[in-house]
Design a protein around this nucleic acid. Structure first.
Length: 826
RNA sequence: GCCGAAGUGGCGGAAUUGGUAGACGCGCACGACUCAAAAUCGUGUGGAGGCAACUCCAUGAGGGUUCGAUUCCCUCCUUCGGCACCA
């Protein structure tokens, strides 16, 4: 009987999916320890499943099956991140309604994913575009709204003319739309925001988005990215007063050590104060003209600090700077940012940009920190280059800190500034509040009603969901398609009953839908709550979350924010949603390039499954290399894996009736293999786990061949059983078949306990002790791993190949590493 | 520019509390089986030299620490990913 993967895989998938063996047990009295293992749910694109999807899904499936075999109650669900632009763009092109194309795509994805034999609890399947899901997305909006965490404000937003939509900052790349690559223009619109910035730092109950990172098992690089994205900085807001005008303002500086070096002030062109400064003066016309010019440049996304560092003097001064008697000229500068700090900056010789700006416009500079080296210090005095942020730099001013190092005075100077009342401590973040409004159709409607007399009114919870209307035209016009619906827009005010009320016509960013889906999996059919409190308690947070590194900041930050909100309001007792996170590396085409239709290097998983089977695909993707690394596809290596499975099949088919001739010849290797595979699964080292199973099966083949050659040997049934069990999470179909057909078991292998190893038996009885002379390998000694130093040295020196090196040389040093080597220095 | 990840045979990759570099797989070569091929099985396979035993070289480059470095330290180069004026 040969290995017929098509028949075997169909057979066992049928069995698994009809017998419900992957169902997670919700019973709180279940004795088994719970384990929530989650994949980042996919966007069901029209292109179908990509070979990148099964990489992560196989890893979580291996862990899920492995954990079940170790007695855990595993929750391993799958669903669809189904709202989003592509379906809508597809509708614009083909006139096919997004609801239809999305559900068609979901069908395809489901079929493809099921063909890979993943052990999902399919009863919990969800799709974010279904009304019984987005009803709760809307609930979330109201929940945030009621707690003051959702608010509306006029804001300049990124607007893409071509996509006719507002984009989040994150969707703008190099001033261009991430999707269509066209220029992004700013436009003022009334938009909804979520107050994510309220959760950056800890509050009295909940750890913040920064400190929360300390207690979770995530890749360090991902944590660093999130920290950089948040961009927290502590500094000082300095007090300034405009000379001859009754205007006071503040200037933020996160590096306040060199504050006395400041010789001029710059203000962002968009700042409302600019107008006041120049009003009625001879400067007014020129300055306002400059402001318009810069605004335009920024609007078309052509601003570049290298080429566009420009400024203009306002004719005004900041009076008597920090009591020094100096008045600092105030300039409008193209590179001053309106939305960071106060929009006004104090400038000095100790900042690269300020320095360049001052040089360009001949503004006075006054360094207050110098290098130790006298010659270099002289250069700084002569302003030959910009000297900044050198921890070894020696302070000159303020007088009180003269001679101290820049790197050591920060806190003292901050205290000094506060004491002298020059300014106050302040914190700034690069991250802004989360803009969630989208002028799009294929998303969850924002549940707000605008009444002529009551104003902004939240939709009462009992009226949820606010259904997406079907009578719309998707063609983009710059306004939300929902405005085109006759049935949707007009509504009675829930508060006063007035007929003169209209619905909010924007939908929510799809990241809102994906910020809470992992709770819905816990209780997916609940009609009263987004998830029941008891069940949320039973399952706790996600134990293991696996997905691509492209979600390092956005999705993972937003989901953490939602979790912190739930924690703050007492819904859950944890404040981090994903305890352990791992990213899979991208799979490249055989040509080492990113897979794309245009390059023609796309591998279709369906074809692989048909020709080599799901088990081969799964095993191959895990064997390619380290899980987190980027790695190219290789059809030949895939065939190698297929051959391996065929060898395992034949090996199992030929189980000897007799238990073998030479005793338990593979005992040590068996125990070592169990140990290695177990540890490697825990560590996500799937590639080396598979190598070890190959070594084990090769050794079994050798043992089987042995009697033919020498008349001795043979393998134990236990070896076949062990290999089958170890391989089962990786290649579940073939192992299930072997388990039943060749090994005669009646129960599914999925419920069989994971093999145990004996540490002592996993150790080699005999080792090769390496003998080095002057660090070079010169000989080997076969001995027990427990050999003593004295014995090892004595025996090593007696070896012929060692003797010849030692003769006539003085022995200077002898090194012995237990169980490893002897090193002799002559 | 800043941050992050990584550079090992013909290829994917193993090996790090510093201890035999190249496990495992692919590819390739030779052999067995076959009329032949495919499949399968077996043997070999980093480079240079030598009949051989063996010797030398080799983990992006150059230094350093060490009896010993792919692993630790310094300088530099390259590739990939992310962020871009955050004062």
């Amino acid at each position: 009987m040969s290995y017929d993967h098509q028949q075997i895989e169909k057979k066992w998938q049928n069995f698994w999916y009809t017998s419900n063996i992957f169902k997670a047990n919700d019973d709180p009295n279940d004795k088994k320890e719970k384990m929530y293992i989650l994949d980042m749910f996919p966007y069901p694109s029209g292109a179908g499943l990509h070979v990148g999807h099964p990489e992560g899904y196989t890893a979580t499936d291996i862990i899920s099956r492995y954990k079940r075999m170790n007695g855990y109650n595993v929750l391993h669900p799958m669903g669809w991140d189904a709202f989003g632009l592509p379906a809508e763009n597809y509708a614009i092109k083909t006139k096919i309604h997004p609801d239809k194309s999305t559900h068609d795509n979901i069908k395809t994805f489901t079929k493809q994913i099921k063909s890979l034999g993943f052990s999902y609890d399919w009863d919990r399947e969800i799709a974010t575009c279904d009304a019984d899901y987005y009803k709760w997305t809307q609930w979330w909006f109201l929940f945030l709204y009621k707690n003051g965490l959702a608010y509306k404000k006029q804001a300049p937003v990124n607007y893409c003319e071509s996509c006719k939509t507002v984009l989040a900052n994150e969707q703008v790349v190099d001033g261009k739309c991430e999707r269509c690559k066209n220029d992004v223009l700013p436009k003022n619109l009334n938009q909804w925001f979520f107050k994510i910035t309220d959760f950056i730092d800890d509050n009295d109950k909940t750890s913040g988005l920064l400190n929360g990172l300390e207690k979770i098992d995530w890749p360090e690089s991902t944590k660093i990215s999130q920290k950089n994205w948040i961009g927290r900085s502590e500094g000082i807001n300095f007090k300034h007063k405009v000379k001859d005008l009754n205007i006071e303002f503040e200037v933020y500086d996160s590096v306040p050590q060199t504050f006395l070096a400041q010789t001029f002030v710059i203000i962002a062109p968009e700042h409302p104060m600019v107008k006041e400064l120049v009003k009625g003066t001879e400067y007014e016309k020129k300055v306002m003209g400059f402001v318009d010019k810069v605004k335009h440049k920024k609007a078309i996304g052509r601003f570049n600090i290298e080429n566009d560092m420009e400024g203009i003097f306002t004719g005004r001064y900041s009076e008597n700077y920090m009591g020094t008697g100096r008045d600092l000229p105030i300039w409008v500068a193209s590179f001053a940012l309106m939305d960071y700090g106060t929009g006004i900056v104090g400038c000095s010789a100790h900042d690269e940009r300020d320095f360049a700006f001052a040089k360009k416009y001949n503004i006075d500079l006054k360094p207050v920190m110098f290098p130790k080296d006298q010659l270099e210090a002289e250069k700084i005095k002569n302003l030959e280059y910009c000297y900044c942020k050198d921890p070894e730099g020696v302070m000159e001013l303020p007088e009180k800190f003269k001679g101290r190092k820049w790197g050591e005075v920060r806190n003292d100077i901050i205290n000094y500034i506060v004491e002298k009342d020059f300014g106050r401590k302040n914190i700034n973040y690069k991250m802004r509040d989360w803009l969630v409004s989208r002028q799009r159709y294929w998303g969850a409607p924002i549940p707000i009603i605008y009444c002529e007399s009551c104003g902004e009114v939240p939709v009462p919870e009992k009226d949820l969901p606010v259904l997406l209307p079907t009578d719309v035209d998707f063609m983009p016009t710059g306004e939300s398609p929902l405005l085109k619906s006759k049935t949707f827009h007009d509504v009675k005010c829930p508060k006063c009953g007035s007929e003169k009320a209209k619905r909010e016509s924007d939908t929510m960013d799809t990241f809102v839908c994906s910020s809470w889906y992992f709770w819905r999996f816990i209780d997916p059919r609940n009609l009263k709550e987004f998830a029941g409190k008891d069940l949320m308690k039973t399952w706790g947070n996600v134990d293991l979350y696996v997905g691509g590194a492209e979600h390092t900041v956005l999705h993972l930050l937003y989901a953490r924010f939602f979790c912190k909100v739930l924690h703050k309001y007492g819904y859950i007792d944890y404040d981090e949603p994903f305890q352990k996170l791992r990213h899979q590396g991208m799979i490249l085409g055989e040509d080492n390039e990113k897979m794309s239709k245009s390059r023609g290097n796309v591998i279709n998983p369906d074809q692989i499954v048909e020709k080599f089977g799901a088990d081969s695909l799964r095993l191959y993707e895990m064997f390619m290399g380290p899980f987190k690394d980027v790695k190219p596809w290789s059809s030949k290596s895939l065939e190698g894996i297929y051959r391996f499975l065929n060898r395992v099949w034949k090996l199992s088919e030929n189980i000897p009736l007799d238990k073998g001739g030479l005793g338990d010849s593979l005992e040590q290797l068996r125990h070592f293999t169990i140990k290695k595979v177990t540890q490697d699964i825990e560590n996500f080292d799937f590639n080396t786990a598979i190598s070890q199973m190959m070594i084990y099966s090769n050794a079994m083949q050798d043992a089987l061949n042995a009697p033919l050659i020498k008349g001795v040997g043979g393998i134990y049934l236990e070896d076949i059983e062990t290999l089958t069990l170890l391989l089962s999470p990786f290649a579940p179909h073939i192992t299930e078949e072997i388990w039943h057909e060749f090994l005669g078991n009646k129960e599914t292998i999925q419920n069989t306990p994971w093999p145990k190893f004996d540490e002592n038996k996993s150790q080699k009885k005999e080792i090769e002790l390496v003998i080095q002379i002057n660090g070079k390998l010169r000989g080997k000694l076969i001995c027990s791993p427990d050999i003593s130093k004295d014995d090892a040295l004595k025996q090593a020196k007696e070896l012929d190949e060692i003797k010849k090196y030692l003769d006539g040389h003085e022995l200077k040093k002898e090194i012995f590493v237990h169980g490893k080597l002897v090193s002799l220095v002559i």
